[in-house]
């Protein structure tokens, strides 16, 4: 096999994989179903983002699933107390891969104003967070911006490197 042929071979394989990647990312990006999940005041901004004026449905995201098994995205909207933290962790573990997390609002990011014995100082202490949306509360536009950032992140993923096909 000459070098040219080898390069052509290599190229073909890569091109094939990029197309797989594109479809793989395109469909996950286009249909992220969030789990219905609201913890505190930020939840109302999330609900507002799904309602008439901002309309999450445009991104194919109005199919809010009640069960974690069918959801792809967890929007942690609000204060995570120490009492609630085990449930949040449990719901996250019950979600089927691929799954993503958006931490919405100052409370979910860092505990916010509540520097107290009862509040978890940031949800990223217990589950991995993909996108942080700051604000108290963040406006629906900010949440939409965060969702678009998450979609961009998904677009950069590749079947070869995503963690959920690796052996544990």
């Amino acid at each position: 096999m000459t070098d040219d042929e080898r390069i052509a071979e290599e190229l073909k394989r890569n091109i094939f994989l990029t197309t797989v990647d594109r479809i793989y990312d395109w469909c996950r990006r286009g249909s992220m179903w969030p789990i219905s999940f609201g913890l505190a005041c930020c939840a109302f901004e999330m609900i507002c983002a799904a309602a008439a004026r901002f309309d999450l449905a445009r991104f194919g995201m109005e199919a809010v699933r009640a069960t974690p098994r069918q959801a792809d995205l967890m929007i942690v909207a609000g204060t995570v107390t120490h009492k609630m933290a085990p449930q949040v962790l449990r719901l996250y573990r019950q979600m089927a891969e691929p799954k993503y997390v958006i931490a919405m609002g100052a409370c979910a990011i860092s505990g916010g104003t509540f520097r107290s014995y009862s509040v978890l100082q940031g949800v990223d202490k217990i589950i991995p967070v993909d996108v942080y949306v700051p604000g108290c509360p963040p406006r629906p536009e900010a949440l939409l911006h965060g969702i678009i950032k998450l979609q961009e992140k998904i677009e950069r993923q590749s079947v070869r490197t995503v963690p959920w096909y690796r052996k544990a």
Binding site: I23, R29, D72
Partner: peptide, 13 residues
């Protein structure tokens, strides 16, 4: 189409 493909890709718990 995107929904279908995503559901096929998703883990079977």
């Amino acid at each position: 189409l995107a929904d279908t493909l995503k559901l096929i890709i998703k883990e079977n718990t």
